[in-house]
Design a protein around this nucleic acid. Structure first.
Length: 107
DNA sequence: AGTAAGGCGGGCA
DNA sequence: GTGCCCGCCTTAC
């Protein structure tokens, strides 16, 4: 499996209402230093989150390691909207209590 | 404390 | 096959 597919696969596993960071994704995929590439992949995201079962990639649940939401290929506002609709509290461009919502891989 | 710049890995033109 | 771009992170001033 390509590393790209591997990363996307990890993103798929994020449950609703939880989030992860680009760095954690990079670590989980076995390339801790490739966090930039993770962003690059999600930017050229094949499926934005609305598509059929199995292919949905909730890329809006991936944020920066400092709690800011980072960017989004469909606009930051939409990303915030999606996060709020999943029960997260977003203030401006930052998620409040984001550390408590972090999803740990390896499980 | 906040801000600036450098570095790094992979996808895409 | 090269070069450039990036939804970033870390270190240094």
């Amino acid at each position: 499996m390509n590393w790209r597919q591997c990363v996307l696969n990890f993103v798929k596993r994020i449950p609703t209402g939880q989030i992860t960071t680009y760095q954690k994704l990079a670590q989980a995929s076995g390339k801790p230093r490739a966090y930039r590439a993770v962003g690059n992949i999600l930017k050229h995201n094949p499926c934005p989150y609305n598509q059929s079962q199995g292919k949905k990639i909730p890329c809006h649940r991936v944020i920066r390691s400092d709690g800011f939401i980072g960017g989004y290929n469909q606009g930051q506002q939409l990303k915030i909207k999606l996060l709020k609709s999943e029960g997260l509290t977003v203030e401006g461009r930052k998620i409040l209590n984001w550390r408590q919502q972090l999803y740990n891989f390896k499980s």
